[in-house]
């Protein structure tokens, strides 16, 4: 049975689940965009630099839309939500917060291209599955955003699939990519988790089939990789990041992305 559409007023017992879900979506995209923006000017070739920046801009735009939905629920300004919330309140998956390489974007980055592609692909598969479900969310404002975003995400997935196909044809690149997927899998357990309110998300129709995400995602990743002769290390679902448990990488990322805003949150920037 299709859930009753919710235009504005969310039942009080569903509200926490909605807010938590929106933070998961917003925080995921914010971190994906942030990590993408760190690559700017450092990609392996100029054409890819331009392409990668478009993807990061899309994700930043999506994060802004999700934070906008939270703002309209009365949780505070979207910039406060994006920049000032402490680590323990962040709901993004661990995988998206991990840094691009051992250094920072300013000093000795040593960014890892294979890791970047492997992670982006895994994230894009999850995002497309999640958006597919959100397109029929009972919460109308979220459903509208999901419909708007889906069109762009198709191209993100395509971009990373092309890279993987290409890299899988070269023995050295394939080895690097395989190692990268292995590394990504180690921290991907919470990517398909929807946190503390999964049952309510399903019952309310806010995110239909929330509990089926990890499985659907793994099937799809595994299928694509095996076609390229790559293997996937199966992961068990955890809830780490979705419950606010994060790594030092997120702490550092938040320090950087909010450095200017935090210097005076009352000022106009």
């Amino acid at each position: 049975m299709a859930a009753q559409p919710i235009d504005r007023d969310v039942k009080p017992e569903w509200r926490d689940a909605l807010v938590d879900l929106l933070f998961q979506l917003a925080d995921d995209d914010l971190l994906v965009a942030f990590r993408g923006s760190e690559w700017l000017g450092l990609a392996p070739h100029v054409e890819e630099d331009v392409a990668l920046s478009s993807l990061a801009q899309d994700e930043m735009g999506h994060a802004a839309m999700y934070f906008g939905l939270l703002e309209s629920l009365g949780l505070g300004s979207r910039d406060d939500l994006a920049h000032l919330r402490p680590v323990a309140e962040r709901r993004n998956a661990i995988m998206v917060e991990l840094k691009n390489g051992p250094g920072t974007y300013l000093e000795q980055p040593h960014y890892d291209w294979a890791f970047t592609i492997a992670r982006a692909f895994c994230y894009d598969v999850m995002e497309s599955l999640r958006l597919e479900r959100l397109k029929s969310s009972s919460y109308v404002p979220l459903r509208d955003v999901a419909r708007k975003i889906s069109g762009e995400e198709k191209y993100h997935l395509l971009h990373h699939q092309i890279w993987i196909r290409r890299m899988a044809l070269d023995p050295d690149a394939k080895t690097r990519l395989q190692a990268a997927f292995h590394r990504v899998a180690q921290d991907a357990g919470d990517l398909g988790s929807t946190g503390a309110h999964t049952a309510i998300l399903e019952e309310s129709g806010l995110l239909p089939d929330a509990s089926g995400l990890t499985r659907a995602w793994q099937d799809q990743v595994q299928e694509f990789l095996s076609l390229q002769g790559l293997s996937w290390t199966p992961v068990r679902e955890t809830s780490t990041g979705r419950l606010g448990k994060h790594t030092k990488d997120l702490e550092d990322a938040l320090d950087t992305l909010s450095e200017v805003y935090r210097s005076d949150p009352l000022a106009r920037w």
């Binding site: 920046s53 990061a56 950087t256």
Partner: peptide, 24 residues
């Protein structure tokens, strides 16, 4: 680019990313 990840607001982050992308 040194200021792209640090740009103060979501709007500024988007704008400066697009700007530096144009330069590339």
């Amino acid at each position: 680019k040194e200021w792209v990840p640090k740009a103060p607001t979501l709007f500024r982050k988007l704008a400066i990313m697009a700007k530096v992308q144009d330069e590339m």
